[in-house]
Design a protein around this nucleic acid. Sequence first.
DNA 1: GAGTTTGAAACT
DNA 2: CAGTTTCAAACTC
Length: 669
Amino acid sequence: MDTPQKQSVTQIGTPISKSKFEDSPVFNYINSLSPIRPVKSIPIPHPFSSLNFTSPPSVFTSPHLTSSHKESRFFKTHNSSSHPTNPVESRDDSNSNEEVVAEEAEATIDASRGDEASTEMELSQISKCGRSSSDDPVASSCGGDTTVLSLVPYTPRGENCSPEVAGIGMQKMYDNVQPKNQTPDWESLISDASELLIFNSPNDSEAFRCLMMQRASTSEARFCSGAGMTNNEPKSSDAIPYEAASILHRGVRRRCLDFEMPGNKQTMSENNTTANELSSSRCVVPSIGLHLNAIAMSSKDCKTNVTHDYSGKIQVGLQGSSSTMQETLDQTENETREDAYQDLEDVLTEPALAELNLSSPKKKRLKLGAGEGESCKRCNCKKSKCLKLYCECFAAGVYCIEPCSCVDCFNKPIHEDTVLATRKQIESRNPLAFAPKVIRSSDSVQETGDDASKTPASARHKRGCNCKKSNCLKKYCECYQGGVGCSINCRCEGCKNKFGRKDGSCIDMETELEEENETSKKSRTAKPQQNTEDLVSKETSSALPMTPMPIYRQQLVQVPFSSSKNMMPPPQSLLGAGSSSGIYNSQYLRNPDISMTQSWNEKSFETVAEDRAEEMPEIIVHSPIANIKTLSPNSKRVTPPHLDSSRRSGGRKLILQSIPSFPSLTHQN
DNA sequence: GAGTTTGAAACT
DNA sequence: CAGTTTCAAACTC
């Protein structure tokens, strides 16, 4: 397909190419179909000037800003779809262009008028994105321009959304349209859109696909290609959009936390958010737990709320956790849900959630079923005063609450200062002490197609385990517990980790089953309850690329660093870690003492084009960890995963680029 | 529920 | 950095 557009692949993003682009027959055709006029390339001098959300310390020009903006737009757009008079929007007052875009987005969503229009808008936005980046470096984050969607192509150092990449994206979309002028392949187009556009979470992406597909087939609303709705789908076609929207909004809600933390709390309430939504949103916050001042206060003043929040957090978390879903999944064959959950699971890379998910199904369920203390890990510390990493609660960044059986617990709001001080101390010793232990990398993609593809979990334990006797087959093993395979970083002996062995070999399902059987024979032959391994196995298998994962998911890379088990990598949608990002941010934004850490983390989540991926097959490679390695007393453990060039995927891929250095917490004060 | 095992965390 | 101790979760009975 030699189209005029193709020629300007590398030029797109420049005014000239843009002009050509808009002059193309296809573009004109699309334009003619849309009641909405494409927004002309209005230069955006300072896209962020009007933003008022809480920003990281000025010392860092965190990319998060851009994404924050992006996310805020995302939030605004979708939210406003149901609440046209969204206050948030009014907050973004200074940028008329953005508003125009937002309005377009709303129109696109609300009017449900035409697929063409939607796509057109996307295209125009993408093009604008590319343009803006070339026009104004400050606006390079394309988040400033993108409304519903964020452009995937992020490049580090303010080169986000490079014209070239954007152009490519647009070109690709065009390529799909071009050949089928009269009857564009919306599905593929949407698929591409999903692929090209990054969402703050896989859920969003999925939801987006669903929504788009629904639009694409107005009469066949139940078609949700990505979700793979089945005919047995009990839900009516009407429910689908709702579900999609729900997923979408869920992510949005989570995401909104990013911006509301300290100063923007008002935003949420202003947002016409329903009580439920608000609750949900809030629920997420606590999960970060950590020693969130807000929580502390809440616990003091309104304990009921706290409890509610806590439990809410858990519930919310579990909504996306395969663990909880597991049972559901076991009973239902609803692919849609499964898919959605898989997406969510992808997001749940961090150990805390992983624990809820993959690790200790038995215990966690027990805990989770405890009602009030659901969110609490119910530690049982006797001597550590819950001020050491031994304490799960502390390690997870949450206060101990009643369900805990700890003794002399200091991990409580009333000892907030102590907790924070201790935490800071620990972090000073090992900046990654509270970082997620399990890293879910883009390997899900990379591994696909090669030997490692058999590895169920596209993740690795940050430092690797050190198992000697458990053969990495018990939850003593952090890798196993996290549902990930052992890696070269592990110093385990006799590794038999079914999620992936240290030596790189992987146990296929059959072998896996055999080993499980053996294990079962060994200890508990006929336990009524599903044994841990079974559960983990199932959960993991659900996460396995049994069926090809949507490209958009494969392309996402998740980053490791966040500061607590419960915290996920920064928002950058690129990570697809919507929920946790919110959590993460919440915690740190609320905690001035560690805000630096946050900004650091944010900075560490820059994305780069695939070519760069080659340089760092695993995010962590170039991540602060590498730098921190020298800082950490446990340097021997905090080693960067080895590079495995063979694990590159052929497709486009974005990975997160780490930041150059990690601001020491000790320098904060 | 008590006791044992295990490996991470902390310490020297 | 290696070895040891402490600790609490995981596990077993």
